[in-house]
């Protein structure tokens, strides 16, 4: 409606611009710089090609040794776990957000607080808590044992890693969806009912399409950190599921800064391209906004 002139808006933005240049743009330039240079800071693409070509031998399920592209396998594994976790978050988060948005205002506030409380705690501590819950002699197996049920082995499996990721990133899925649903004009839902939709029709034809931007940002906010996560897999996966985040951390600790930067850079480019594609398709669907 009222379009500000760009020049007028610049001055108040100066502190924020300075902040983002210092703490976002400059570090990114450094990452790129390290990724494309060698130890002596001469230009090279070796680090990048190493990501795609490095191989190692792993034992396949049938016991034979196989040569694989190390980092592509790691990246594939990260992507798989991240996609599964994101999907579970969405599956649980969407109905929950819907129910929250329709609840009484007081109930809404309580639920939002309950969802945010775990975020106030340190991420490492939360992961440690899950270790004690999931261990072979942990809380879950104690409870199962109490009822005379055989203990189950969770820790050190992909399931444990996924549980940890879902738990940690769930709020990032539910909050954007909830906030868009809470803002939704109830008159639109009434209009849909008025025009012949039953409850499912209202959900399918009005609520879901209108909540898509929230779903997209929820997916983005869960998928991206869970692709690059590194600590959860070490602790809950007993180190068996080496992820791309662990690879970056490992190279960094081993002081291979240039290769660590290269992996980080490639990851960033892949995520940026994904986000760009998503953004392109959503803006195509929601052209007016």
């Amino acid at each position: 409606m009222n379009k500000h002139k760009k020049g007028g808006a610049f001055l108040p933005l100066a502190p924020y611009s300075l902040w983002s240049v210092l703490f976002i743009v400059v570090p990114l330039i450094f990452v790129a710089y390290y990724a494309f240079t060698d130890e002596a800071f001469r230009f090279t693409t070796e680090n990048i090609t190493r990501f795609f070509t490095a191989t190692s031998n792993i034992q396949a399920e049938d016991g034979t040794m196989q040569e694989v592209r190390t980092y592509l396998v790691i990246f594939g594994r990260s992507l798989k776990l991240a996609v599964i976790s994101t999907f579970i978050c969405l599956l649980m988060g969407y109905p929950m957000a819907y129910i929250m948005a329709r609840a009484k205002e007081r109930t809404q506030k309580i639920l939002v607080t309950l969802i945010m409380i775990p975020m106030w705690m340190n991420f490492l501590i939360r992961t440690y808590a899950w270790m004690t819950i999931l261990q072979d002699t942990g809380i879950i197996n104690n409870i199962l044992g109490f009822f005379g049920i055989q203990p189950i082995h969770i820790i050190g499996t992909e399931t444990a890693v996924i549980i940890g990721m879902v738990y940690d990133y769930f709020p990032y899925m539910i909050l954007p969806i909830y906030s868009i649903m809470a803002k939704m004009d109830t008159k639109l839902l009434e209009a849909a009912r008025d025009l012949g939709c039953n409850s499912f029709g209202v959900l399918r034809r009005v609520i879901f399409p209108l909540s898509l931007p929230g779903v997209i940002s929820g997916i983005t906010m869960v998928l991206i950190p869970s692709i690059s996560t590194f600590y959860i897999s070490q602790k809950l996966g007993n180190g068996k599921f080496f992820l791309i985040g662990d690879a970056i951390e490992g190279q960094y600790i081993a002081n291979n800064l240039h290769f660590a930067a290269a992996i980080a850079f490639i990851l960033m480019v892949i995520l940026l391209v994904c986000m760009g594609v998503v953004k392109y398709f959503t803006s195509k669907t929601y052209g007016g906004e």
């Binding site: 639109l188 009434e190 209009a191 009912r193 008025d194 025009l195 939709c197 009005v206 209108l210 007016g288």
Partner: peptide, 19 residues
């Protein structure tokens, strides 16, 4: 329920579907 009534409404602020 509303969707089974042979009655339609023009809402105060129109309630058009923005998508």
């Amino acid at each position: 329920p509303p969707h089974k009534r042979h009655v339609n409404t023009v809402f105060q602020k129109y309630a058009l579907f923005p998508h």
